[in-house]
Write a protein that binds this DNA or RNA. Structure first.
Lengths: 227, 227
DNA sequence: CACCATACCAAGCAAATGCTTGGTAGGCTG
DNA sequence: CAGCCTACCAAGCATTTGCTTGGTATGGTG
C-alpha cells in the first residue's frame, strides 16, 4: 500500500495539490479526527472513495501537509542560524519568519499546533517530535547567544524564555487574519514588529526602555479589531 | 485501557464528580470528539451505558465541566477588577490568578483552550463566546487603566497587547506540570513571576529595566526543566 | 417487611466513518 | 485505433460511536 507515487519532479500534480489544500483547511478548522473523508470529498466536489485514487489514507494527507510545510520552515531557520547577524537581529528574524509562516500557511501551522500531540502517538509521525526538538534548539541557541553577547538579560531562565517566545509567536495563528485593504487590520509584519517590541522591552513604562531596536520602531494605526 | 482503578480514597466527592473528573482528564488529553463514552466508562471501571444514569449526554459532561470552572475563574477576575489596587498590581494579580487556574484546573483550562471553537458552534455552548468577551473586557480594562495611569507605555496597541497577554498566559497549560519535590521544576508562582517580569520589562538587557515591581522580584532556582 | 432510590450491567440499534472494489469516461500517444 | 493513464463514480462492508432499553444488586427508610 505504499504510496510513493509522487513523481517529486512534477510541478503539475495540481489536482492532488488542490485536494491537499482543501483537506488542510478542513483539518485546521475542525481538527483532523473531526474531519471526515466525506467532508473533504464534498468540499472538493467528488465522492469520498475518489480520494483514495490520490491518497492512501486520511493519515497520509496530513502527513504530506505537515512534512512539506516543516521542510520549508526549518530551511529558513537554518539560514538564520548560519547567518552573520548579531543575536538580537537573529531573534527578530526568527520571530518574523514565524509570523510570515502564519501568514502564508495558516492551515498548516494550525494543524501542527492542534494535532501534533495526537498525531505524535503514531509511529508514522515520529518526525513531529524530532522537529519539535529541532525547533527548541533553534530558539534556545538564539537566546543563549543573546545572553552570552550581552544583548539579553543574564538572569533569564532560558527554558522558560524559550517557551514564552514559542507560545507567544505560534499561538497567534488562532487569531491572525490577513488584513483586508480597507479594514485597517495589522499585517503580519505589523504584528511581528509589535510582538518583538513587547518581547524585548516589555509593556511597562518604567524608566529606561531606551535602547530599542531600530528596525522595530514604526508608527501604527490606532484602529481596533475584533477577538 | 484496562486499568479499572480502585475507587481510591475518594473522600467526599460524589460518584458523579469522580466521573466528571475522569472525563475532564480524557477530554483534555485526547480532545472532546476524540474521547468516546467507552473511553470514559473504561477509565471509570463501568460500562458505557452506565454513564447515562449520571448524565444526559457526552455534551452535558463538558458543559458542566466548563461552566463550573468558568464560574469560579470569573469570580476571581471580578474581585480583582473591583479592588483598590493600582493598575500594575491588578494586572499582576490577574496573571497570577490565571496561572493558579492552570495549576489547579489544568484539564478544564486545556479543554477550554482546545475545544472552545468547536463547541461554540452549538447553541448550547453560546455562553463560551460570552465568557470570551467578558475575558477580553477584563484584560482590556486593566491595560487601558495601566496606560491611563502611566504605568504602561502609551504607545501600546491595546488589542494586540491583550492578545499577547492572553495567549502567553493560557497557552502555558500545554507545558506546565506541577513540580515534583525533587525535580527543580518551577511552581506556578515561579512561572507567573517570570512571565510578569518578561511581560513588563522585556527580555532585553538594554539600559534601564529599572522600576520593576516590588512583588515580582524574587530569587529563582537555576535548574533547568524539560520540553 | 414493603418501598424506593442509587448505581450499575447486558445487549443492541442506528448512524457515522474509513476504506475497498469494480467499473466508466475522456484524453494522450505510438 | 489500440493501449494506457488519470480522474472519477456507485455501491457497500466492517467497525466505531452515542445512546437506549429493560433488568439486577444493594442499602437506606417508614
Amino acid at each position: 500500500m505504499s504510496a510513493a507515487s509522487t513523481p517529486e519532479t512534477s510541478a503539475t500534480s495540481s489536482r492532488r495539490d488542490q485536494l491537499l489544500a482543501i483537506a488542510a483547511q478542513l483539518f485546521a478548522e475542525k481538527g483532523f479526527k473531526n474531519t471526515t473523508v466525506r467532508d473533504i470529498a464534498d468540499a472538493a466536489g467528488i465522492l469520498s472513495g475518489s480520494l483514495y485514487h490520490h491518497f492512501d489514507s486520511k493519515e497520509s494527507m496530513v502527513d504530506e501537509i505537515l512534512s512539506t510545510f516543516q521542510e520549508g520552515l526549518f530551511a529558513q531557520y537554518d539560514e538564520i542560524l548560519a547567518s552573520a547577524d548579531d543575536a538580537r537581529t537573529k531573534l527578530e528574524r526568527a520571530v518574523r519568519v514565524s509570523f510570515e509562516a502564519i501568514h502564508q500557511h495558516p492551515h498548516e501551522v494550525a494543524i501542527y499546533q492542534n494535532e501534533a500531540d495526537y498525531l505524535g502517538t503514531f509511529d508514522r509521525f515520529g518526525y513531529l517530535a524530532d522537529r519539535n526538538t529541532q525547533s527548541r534548539q533553534v530558539w534556545v541557541t538564539l537566546i543563549e547567544e543573546g545572553v552570552r553577547t550581552g544583548v539579553l538579560r543574564s538572569d533569564l531562565d532560558v527554558t522558560l524564555t524559550y517557551r514564552f517566545i514559542r507560545d507567544t509567536v505560534w499561538v497567534a495563528v488562532r487569531w491572525y487574519r490577513p488584513p483586508t485593504p480597507g479594514s485597517g487590520g495589522h499585517t503580519h509584519t505589523d504584528v511581528a514588529d509589535q510582538y518583538v517590541r513587547i518581547l524585548l522591552d516589555g509593556i511597562s513604562a518604567t524608566g529606561g526602555r531606551g535602547g530599542r531596536s531600530a528596525t522595530v520602531t514604526r508608527p501604527r494605526n490606532p484602529k481596533a479589531s475584533r477577538t
